[in-house]
């Protein structure tokens, strides 16, 4: 077990990814930041890449006050929700003085999904996490900011406000 944890903590991936940062030309500072920051030591199991269904926990990426939402109903299809679909969820974690509180039943739009989604030009996209933006029944945003990347498929789904507020569109 100790050997397994040691292998997880080893900086093999760090050397391989050293020159890869968020900005195109900020290779040096990103690699320095990677070395100074402590590594992620606990044994991570990879994200299960399937539909967002009942009891799936999603990260909330807006400033509505919720931190984590558990899906209790998918509003699209039999199997579950995918990128751009709407879900009903229950707030599991919330910030102290937010617009929503723990236990509230809320609607949300899936803006990032670990399951891959094909595009019309033959490419595919998949994210590392499942994330949601909280909306009301009419589809209007509860928060005023959206953090992290969102896919441009939301344009087809008529969620233009989310695209307008997003930091990055992929």
């Amino acid at each position: 077990m100790a050997a397994f944890l040691r292998s997880k903590c080893s900086p093999v991936g760090r050397t391989l990814m050293g020159s890869l940062g968020n900005s195109l030309f900020g290779a040096a500072n990103s690699s320095v930041g990677a070395i100074t920051r402590p590594s992620h030591c606990d044994a991570i199991s990879q994200q299960i890449r399937t539909f967002i269904q009942m009891r799936t926990n999603l990260k909330v990426v807006d400033n509505s006050g919720a931190k984590r939402v558990m899906c209790i109903q998918s509003l699209r299809g039999k199997k579950g929700a995918r990128l751009g679909d709407m879900i009903i969820g229950s707030v599991k974690e919330a910030q102290p003085r937010g617009k929503v509180k723990k236990g509230d039943v809320v609607y949300g739009v899936v803006v990032r999904a670990a399951m891959k989604k094909g595009r019309s030009d033959g490419s595919e996209v998949q994210f590392d996490d499942n994330a949601v933006v909280l909306v009301n029944k009419k589809g209007e945003l509860i928060g005023t900011r959206v953090f992290g990347p969102v896919p441009h498929e939301l344009r087809k789904k008529k969620h233009l406000k989310i695209l307008a507020l997003a930091e990055h569109i992929v």
Partner: peptide, 19 residues
């Protein structure tokens, strides 16, 4: 595979795509 605003994004592209 790339990082966008701290979130890992994986994309599959056709190598000979006109795009």
């Amino acid at each position: 595979r790339r990082l966008v605003a701290g979130v890992g994004v994986e994309s599959v592209f056709p190598l000979y795509s006109p795009n």
